[in-house]
Write a protein that binds this DNA or RNA. Structure first.
Lengths: 199, 199
DNA sequence: CTATTTATGTATCGATCGATACGGAAGTAC
DNA sequence: GTACTTCCGTATCGATCGATACATAAATAG
C-alpha cells in the first residue's frame, strides 16, 4: 500500500547529492542552511527539517553517502585477500585519482570536511576523526600482515611504516586542494611505494 | 618624546599570543570575536578594533607571528647552504616535533588554520595556501639542487619526489591533530628519508 | 463526504555574528 | 589651566545563524 500523506515535491536523493557537493567544497561549519536549502532545490526550512532533521544529521547522512560512493577508495585497505602492498598502493592511487577528479570538489571530505570546528561542530569533527583512525588501523593491519607473510622483513618498524603511509594518505587532501594534479601525485606514489621492496 | 594620548591598558603582545593559540586550535572562521576578546584579556570591542583593525587583519598578524616563531621549522627548506637532503629531513623532523608539542595546539596553523572557509574566509584561505605553495617550491628547489650536485641520480623524477615530501609534510598536521605522537612520526620520517639514498 | 497524515510556504524566533556610535576617562602638549 | 590625542566601557547596529510556529495544501483511509 502506498504511503499516506502529501507526497514530497523535491527529489530527496538529488538534494542529498547537492548537499554532499556543498559540504565537500566548503566544509561543515561555514556551510549555512540558506546555502544548503538553495542547492537542495530551493526547499523551504520546514521541508528541510522534516526531511533531514538538522544540519548535523544531514552532514552525518552526507558522510554515509560519501563513504558509499567516492569514499570507497579506501575500502581496499580492509581487504585481506589481496597482497598488503597492493592494498596500500591501490588505496593511495585511487585516493589520488578521486581527490583530483574535477567532476566534484577537490580533496577528501573525511580529511577536510570538518577540520575547523568550534563547539557546534565538535561532534562531526569526531565522527570524521574516527573514520581516519579506522583507516590508519587498516594500514597497520596490512603492514603487520606483510611482515607476518615475509613480504616485509621481520625487523620492520610497523608503526613507523604505518604512520608514513597514513600521513601521506591524509596529506593527499591538502595537496589536491592546493592544485596538485593526479599525474604528480601518482609519481609521488611511485616513490613512496618504492620503499616497500627496498626495505 | 613619549606618545600622546591615553596609554593602552592591556598587553598587546600577550593578546596577540592568546589570539594565535585560539586561532591555532579552532581555525579562522569558527573563532568568534567574543572568544577572541575574552582570551585577549577581556578587552572591549572598541579596544579590539582600535588595536587590530578587524578579525581578518588580526588573523594575518597572527600568521606573521606564527611564521616568526613556531612556524620557522620550515625555514630550513630555503637554506641552500646545507645539503638538500638535510634541509628536507630537518624540516620534516622539526615540523613533527613542533606540531606534536603539547605546549601549544596540535598541527600546523598554515595547513589547518583556514581549511574550512566560506566566502568570508576566502582571503585568509588564499594567504595560507600561498605559504604552502612557497614551501612546496622550496622543496622542489632542494630536490633539483640534489640532482644537480649528483646527490640524486640524473634520472630522478623531480616533481614526483617533490610532491612526495610535500604531501607528507602537509599530512603531518592532520596526523598530529589526530593524536599521532612525535616518536611515531619520527620513525615514519626515518622511512620516507630512506628513499633518498636507495634511489 | 470526513478524518488522518504528510509536505509546503511564510513569517519569525532567540542567539550570535562581525563591527560601530557615542560619551567619558587618562594621558601629553602648551 | 585648556586643547588635543588616544583608549576604554556600554549599548547597540544590521545581518545572519540554526531552528520553529502556524496555517494551508495534497495525498490516502474509511
Amino acid at each position: 500500500m502506498a504511503r499516506t500523506g502529501r507526497p514530497r515535491e523535491f527529489d530527496r536523493q538529488a538534494a542529498l547529492d547537492a548537499a554532499l557537493t556543498l559540504f565537500w567544497r566548503q566544509g561543515y561549519e561555514p556551510t549555512s542552511l540558506n546555502q544548503l536549502k538553495e542547492v537542495m532545490g530551493g526547499i523551504s526550512p520546514t521541508s528541510f527539517y522534516a526531511a533531514f532533521g538538522s544540519k548535523e544529521q544531514l552532514f552525518e547522512e552526507v558522510v554515509e553517502l560519501y563513504r558509499s560512493t567516492e569514499g570507497r577508495v579506501t575500502d581496499i585497505l580492509f581487504d585481506e585477500e589481496i597482497s598488503p602492498r597492493l592494498a596500500i598502493e591501490r588505496c593511495l592511487r585511487q585516493s589520488a585519482k578521486m581527490q583530483t577528479d574535477p567532476s566534484h570538489p577537490l580533496g577528501c571530505l573525511v580529511v577536510s570536511g570538518a577540520s575547523n570546528c568550534g563547539s557546534s561542530g565538535e561532534k562531526v569533527g569526531q565522527l570524521l576523526k574516527s573514520i581516519r583512525r579506522k583507516n590508519n588501523e587498516a594500514i597497520r593491519s596490512q603492514v603487520r600482515r606483510a611482515v607476518a607473510s615475509g613480504d616485509l622483513p621481520g625487523r620492520t618498524d610497523i608503526d613507523g611504516l604505518t604512520e608514513m603511509f597514513g600521513t601521506f594518505l591524509v596529506g593527499i587532501s591538502t595537496a589536491a586542494r592546493d592544485g596538485t594534479n593526479r599525474a604528480d601525485l601518482d609519481r609521488s606514489i611511485d616513490h613512496i611505494m618504492g620503499l616497500w621492496q627496498k626495505n
